[in-house]
Design a protein around this nucleic acid. Structure first.
Lengths: 348, 348
DNA sequence: CTGAAAGCGCTTACAG
DNA sequence: CTGAAAGCGCTTACAG
């Protein structure tokens, strides 16, 4: 910038104005400066210099506690991303994806991006309780909004009533009279393990969302006199379709179940696929409900509970932008809605 | 940092070392500095200051010429993102999403994020020829890699042989003897318009990829003596499923077609859905082929041509990282592969 | 193992 | 409408 100013015979400030305050310069002078810059190969104001000076970056950081490739596989995460990016575009801010290892042991090595990432604030998505990355991001002392995460300290947050929503959909399913029930969850404890889950592991669930949903399912079972200990719970160990299928396979391979409660639509759809492969009709031989109401749920006629995923992203991003602007943070709880389609056996 | 240094009774440099060069300080001194920083509420080295000083940001910019919410809807883009983010994670760099308006008229207003985004380099994804954002990003004089975009200047690029791949899959379809053929494309000209396309618009296609694929389809038709002017081409005007369905609807509503060549799997799957709604069997009443081989194509038994989407993202990101490291850029052309499943009527 | 100093590139409040 | 100056927070080469 200094060189451009010199070559154009103006002050450095004038060059800055040429880019940022066009009306502070005469048109001719501005054109001249820009022409000289072009000739010299000057690329325009350096973002780092600007950031340092203004204290603003123009980017929102989205912290994801999973490998990114994984996150893109999850339709619910994709919906959330849509909502977030809508707001980012409107506000002309970039969205910076900050992956960080899920296993606590690997956090130190992966924290660099959290510590060094140039952002104006953080969106913290679905992170297990007590995860060290929470401290890391808190230590940056930047505005932040949690999504689907408990906030014991009353920090800004966007979420839904997971327990109530889970109870509702399970309640609806069980009201059809099923007694042999299985539950499919993606992940209770982030240790990569899957398979049949015992009561201790359910209790140990580090994921707030999953713990709440399990509590909701249990409440529905209680109401319908389905003994909780008779309910088989299988954990996929991850969010991809393959693991979901493997979990469903495991559930269906054991004693027969009349009904499957899946903690996500992806798992529910996997369960339906696997059931069909076993020659079972849905809902006649086995009923299934999901959670989320992702776009594919409708096509499959899946009974599920809708949570406004896009809105969640949109509101979280907007809230963060507000906080960055100095407005107070708050907690936003979004409504959910039971969506009855065919897979629960509602027509029977 | 200055304040921390003062409070800890050390130089500013020592504070910097405490964070970045742990071994340059005695353990005790480092611990002391960190403790003082903690007490003072110092959040650690400011990324903007670091960037300014080192000239490095630690982020890759991904330029998307579409609204981001839109991009997340496209399974092919999602696959690409997976590949890119894999590399980013390994290299501990963040991925910054830089949306920029597709319509040239709106580029000026949306260019801010391109101009101000703090990144070490750009991945430029599927951008129409002559789009002003290309100049914007070029003017930043940062390393960059094009994905699926022609690079007349021999700039680094990752792509596939779109024409050849399109020819192959269309050739296979037509070899079954179909004469009444329709083509479904997502977007030829980025003006948001959809509907039946005339020869002029095909010629005017601003998207390199689509132009190449159309050329490939035309070549296959020529080979099989299907008069090109008898081939109806319908453009969706976008990448979402709804528009794909509308385009398929339009194609099927007119004179009957025996075979549909879709320029993406998403469009092919939409065509199959719409055909079923019309009571048509696939491939008996109408054959369909796609392009990409997204995960859903397999489940649908779709005949298509596989392009290594994840690899494309992975290689592009790696190439960009290499260029940032000072290595020379190059062009990478990835192989494609015809995947024959059922929807082309291969079994007949 | 520690410290003093220079300078990365920018914006803005202020004076003219 | 224009210019001179200060300072944002940092890292590193260098001297001790």
């Amino acid at each position: 910038m200094h060189d451009v100013a010199k070559a154009a015979g103006v002050s450095q400030a004038a060059v800055s104005y040429a880019y940022n305050r066009p009306h502070k310069l005469s048109e001719a002078r501005r054109a001249h400066i820009l022409a000289v810059a072009e000739k010299l190969g000057y690329a325009g104001p350096n973002p780092a210099g600007r950031s340092l000076r203004t204290g603003q970056v123009g980017a929102l950081g989205l912290m994801i506690t999973d490998s990114l490739p994984y996150a893109f596989d999850d339709p619910a995460t994709t919906e959330l991303l849509k909502g977030i990016s809508e707001v980012g575009e409107l506000a002309e801010v970039a969205l910076t994806l900050l992956p960080c290892p899920l296993e606590s042991a690997r956090v130190a090595e992966g924290a660099g991006v959290l510590v060094r990432g140039a952002v104006d604030g953080f969106l913290v998505y679905s992170i297990p309780e007590g995860h060290p990355a929470i401290d890391t991001v808190l230590s940056r002392r930047l505005p932040l909004v949690f999504i689907d995460t408990p906030n014991p300290d009353g920090l800004p947050r966007v979420g839904i009533r997971d327990r109530k929503a889970a109870r509702e959909v399970a309640d609806h399913l069980l009201s059809h009279g099923y007694r042999q029930v299985g539950i499919l969850v993606d992940r209770l404890v982030p240790d990569g393990r899957g398979g049949t889950v015992d009561a201790a592991r359910v209790k140990a669930a580090r994921d707030h969302v999953m713990r709440e949903r399990m509590a909701g399912y249990a409440a529905a079972c209680r109401k319908h006199k389905v003994p909780w200990r008779s309910v088989r719970v299988v954990e996929a160990g991850g969010f991809d379709y393959e693991r979901a299928c493997a979990a469903a396979e495991q559930l269906l391979a054991a004693e027969p179940v009349e009904a499957i409660i899946a903690a996500s639509d992806l798992m529910a759809l996997a369960a339906i696929d696997v059931a069909h492969k076993h020659g079972l009709r849905v809902p006649d031989d086995v009923a299934v409900v999901g959670f989320d109401d992702i776009p594919a749920a409708k096509a499959a006629g899946l009974t599920t509970v809708r949570q406004p995923l896009v809105d969640k992203g949109r509101l979280a991003a907007r809230l963060l932008l507000d906080i960055i602007d100095g407005k107070p943070g708050r907690e936003i709880i979004l409504p959910t809605e039971l969506v009855v389609r065919g897979t629960c056996g509602a027509a029977h």
